[in-house]
Design a protein around this nucleic acid. Structure first.
Lengths: 188, 188
DNA sequence: ATCCTTCTATACCGAACGGTATATTAGCAT
DNA sequence: ATGCTAATATACCGTTCGGTATAGAAGGAT
């Protein structure tokens, strides 16, 4: 593996375990078996390294979610596909999703929240526009798109959190449950 | 206000905004208008300060939750009282709950997670034992206490997160919704 | 062969980190 | 008054922080 990829993978592991602020650049380069100038050659700064990490992984996740959230008249199926997409992504990118989740919940003035808030807003936009298109066929959903997006993502992240804590497996039954739990909030 | 309380309040504000790791002791004492030895006199270390913060606030929260979670035959009412208790606590302790939530989601090897995991386990224990007592009257709940506790707390934290982001108000209607959303997961 | 670019290491920077040795002040009990 | 304790400040500790100036390899293009 080349140095750049190696740095990214080591940084992801450390950030997700200890948190971005708690990890020093020195720690990363030692673990990666290189020296600081190499890291700074590729990423310019510690923050640049974080940004590269977020960019690469979020791009892939958002691509998947965009495909899954393409509503074509069958809302339950679309929701199921979205949940399935998230769960599948998380299974293949546990460390990244754990890091990202931690950053979402960091304080409103923190660098980590600022770094990932743009990506999360984009994901919410994707979900919101899915609900907007669905609202044309479900009159009672009108004007609640944003709220639905927040709640839906919240439920998904609940399940993912349980998975990351080894409390559930994230199988097909769980996909169904997540959709079901959310749907109940819509139709009642 | 005495120095000790002042330090606690300044630290809580900074920790909740920037994150524990991102805040320096120097920053705290400057904001509080004192010097380092004063802080170290009262709390011994930066970590000791965090522990004191967690101890004081969690003790109060857990006391409230324990009272609310005292199941006496009416599960929906008990659930409602628990949600109400959380919401009311959060309204009066926004900064603390935001900090605590961030710490819950920090990496599995981080100091912040270690600092608050004990308290969260205790809260989960309280909820779990509530569900265990309720299971005597609801046969279909048996063996799922832990999972119910996780899910219930997850939904509550969803609503709280939306509140902390100024997306909802956390009023009585929201209490009802949270209970409703969770209950659907039980009875179906 | 030489030049240019890319990549990497040695060695270092000033600043900030968490923490403390020492001394002084204030209040209180004797 | 004296001595004891709690509380506070000045000034400093060694370490680590993120980041960099400089120079040497390495490799391809001319």
């Amino acid at each position: 593996m080349d140095n750049r990829s190696n740095i990214l993978s080591v940084a992801l592991r450390l950030f997700s375990r200890l948190g971005y602020e708690a990890v020093g650049v020195q720690e990363i380069v030692e673990e990666a078996g290189i020296t600081k100038p190499t890291l700074y050659h590729y990423f310019g700064s510690k923050r640049g390294l974080l940004d590269a990490l977020l960019e690469e992984n979020f791009t892939s996740l958002m691509e998947d979610v965009r495909k899954a959230a393409d509503y074509q008249g069958d809302l339950p199926m679309t929701l199921q596909k979205v949940v399935e997409t998230f769960f599948s992504f998380v299974k293949n990118n546990k460390e990244f999703y754990r890091m990202q989740l931690a950053m979402c919940f960091s304080g409103p003035g923190s660098e980590t929240l600022e770094a990932c808030s743009g990506y999360n807003k984009e994901i919410l936009r994707i979900l919101e526009s899915m609900f907007m298109r669905a609202a044309k066929d479900h009159g009672n959903m009108k004007g609640r798109h944003r709220r639905y997006a927040f709640t839906f993502l919240g439920i998904i992240n609940n399940y993912i959190t349980l998975f990351l804590g080894s409390h559930i497996k994230l199988d097909t039954q769980e996909i169904f449950q997540a959709v079901h739990q959310f749907s109940h909030g819509i139709y009642s």
